[in-house]
Amino acid sequence: MTVTFLILAALTLAGTVAAMAMRNLIHCVLALTLGFAGLAALYLLLGAQFVGFTQILVYVGAVAILAVFVIMMTQSAIPAMQSIFSSFWVAGSVVAAAVFAVLAWAICRSGFASQVLPPVEAAVHPIGDALMHGYVLPLEIMGLLLTAAMIGAVVLAMHEKRRTP
């Protein structure tokens, strides 16, 4: 546990907690973005450059912007004056604690935590090789699926325009 890890972990936790606790939804998304960035830095700390930078590119660059836009389009700028705790908060925390206990129990049972793995070379080259050789079919299927989704989105957006003469 290095100082860097502690700082990054604290930053990530602070970001995610703030994302839950803040009143203004845009602030929540910005705090969540901080959490994403902290997570990316943690990946980088583990030596996974590709994953870390993709995390920043996708989550900070795209997902956060998308979320922020959706919130801005649907919500009014004035934050709601209700409490951030819902009325079921006791039940919710019980469920959350139970889920956490099950997950922790499963991880502890698996022996994954005590196992010392050899350091993995997670450079860009092997990832690219794996994607282009071993996993080329799943990659292509994913690409097809995303293209289909994009075309569908465009068609949905075009629909209104076709109706107006």
């Binding site: 993709t54 590119l57 900070v60 660059g61 860009v124």
Partner: peptide, 25 residues
Amino acid sequence: NLNAGILYFFAVGSLVELAVFMAGW
């Protein structure tokens, strides 16, 4: 000298969009 230097460049560049949104909003 990063292994994924170009990727890093574009990842960092995407932060600018967030800053611009923050300023505009």
